[in-house]
């Protein structure tokens, strides 16, 4: 196949992925809408704190080891409590909601496969690691976000999260193929390095993780603030606030070391390509700013007297910095990282 054919197929693959993901997005929305509590079936949920449950069972000496076993399942479910076994007894998920989520999940898998295909074809087309310009960063970032979501959703029930991952991914892909699209080309000399594969891959992966983290953080902040009635009633079907907050934290503590690694790998590469490991180039400045903001988030979370809400806001601010770093710094700031391919 010629590069031109590969390019056509790669773009076709991304367009198809967008079509499929749009359907997935709609079905995830339907899923959430059907979870809305109807008046006659208002659930009588009574959440028992996990620790208390374990303790209560545990004091019954006769149960013995069995108590330990149930403790483990309960803790497993503690993160998605409000969704797990505890609630199921009180409230049965409507069949329509389940059906919509099932279809959405299959479509998400298909869409993910198509994005992976699009990235692979792009790599074949350009004969290199497909991370040389903004278009490529965007499609690879979307791919990572989808892969992380799919991989994670295999291990726990994340149907409620689907909408909030697929929608930003669709937005990114849309911007990529319209605004950031760049014809395949060879790299400029400073990018020809093994560090491209290391530094940019890890950077993109951690941005994908931060992105999902920011999605959950926002759900937490909204759910915590608005009255859960009327149109926002579906929020009650989402995991409880503290569980959401912990999920967001869990993603951030994976993404943060990856980001730290990005910073270090970037410095090693900068020394190789530009002669100094740190030049206070705008992109470096913003990478550092993002690092400092997320470091502040982790500190805030460990500081007594700072509420989880306030800490989570810092995490959201961190993602805002990532968006600035990607969309503004690449395009408008003069620096050595001017690789957008758009001029």
């Amino acid at each position: 196949m010629t590069d031109q054919t590969l390019a056509t197929y790669s773009n076709l693959s991304i367009y198809s992925a967008m079509a499929v993901l749009t359907l997935a997005m709609i079905l995830y929305a339907v899923h959430l809408a059907r979870l809305m509590p109807s008046k006659e079936r208002e659930p009588k949920r009574e959440l028992v704190p996990v620790g208390a449950e374990v303790g209560a069972v545990g004091t019954d000496a006769g149960v013995g080891i069995a108590a330990g076993d149930s403790a483990s399942t309960l803790t497993g479910g503690a993160i998605d409590c409000g969704w797990g076994n505890l609630v199921e007894e009180a409230w049965v998920e409507p069949a329509g909601a389940r059906k919509a989520a099932g279809m959405a999940w299959m479509l998400t898998l298909l869409g993910t496969a198509l994005v992976v295909l699009g990235v692979a074809l792009r790599a074949a087309e350009v004969h290199r690691w497909p991370l040389g310009n903004m278009y490529e960063f965007a499609i690879v970032g979307s791919m990572f976000a989808l892969l992380v979501y799919c991989g994670w959703a295999l291990r726990r029930d994340l149907r409620w999260l689907g909408l909030f991952v697929v929608t930003p991914v669709l937005l990114t892909l849309g911007l990529a193929i319209t605004v950031w699209y760049t014809d395949a080309a060879e790299l400029m000399p400073s990018l020809k390095s093994v560090w491209l594969a290391i530094h940019v891959t890890v950077a993109t992966l951690s941005v994908a993780l931060f992105g999902i983290g920011a999605s959950i953080a926002l759900i937490y902040l909204i759910k915590d603030r608005v009255p859960l009635t009327g149109k926002l009633g579906f929020l009650r079907r989402l995991p409880e606030g503290p569980a959401l907050e912990k999920l967001a934290y869990g993603l951030h503590i994976v993404a943060f070391p990856l980001w730290t690694f990005t910073l270090i790998a970037g410095a090693i590469w900068a020394r190789q390509a530009w002669g100094a490991y740190w030049n206070w180039d705008p992109k470096e400045v913003w990478t550092f700013v993002i690092w400092a903001v997320y470091a502040a988030y982790l500190h805030a979370r460990a500081t007594t007297g700072v509420s989880r809400r306030a800490a989570t806001w810092i995490a959201v601010a961190g993602f805002a910095c990532i968006i600035i770093n990607y969309a503004v710094v690449n395009m408008w700031f003069v620096g050595q990282h001017s690789y957008s391919g758009i001029s």
């Binding site: 705008p282 400092a292 502040a296 500081t303």
Partner: peptide, 25 residues
């Protein structure tokens, strides 16, 4: 810890003008 947190955020904020204004060095 609160001061450290504050300084950390201030450091992030303080680094920003270096990317928006041209730097002599």
């Amino acid at each position: 810890m609160r001061t450290a947190l504050f300084l950390l955020l201030l450091l992030a904020l303080g680094a920003v003008p270096g990317s928006t204004f041209p730097q002599r060095s």
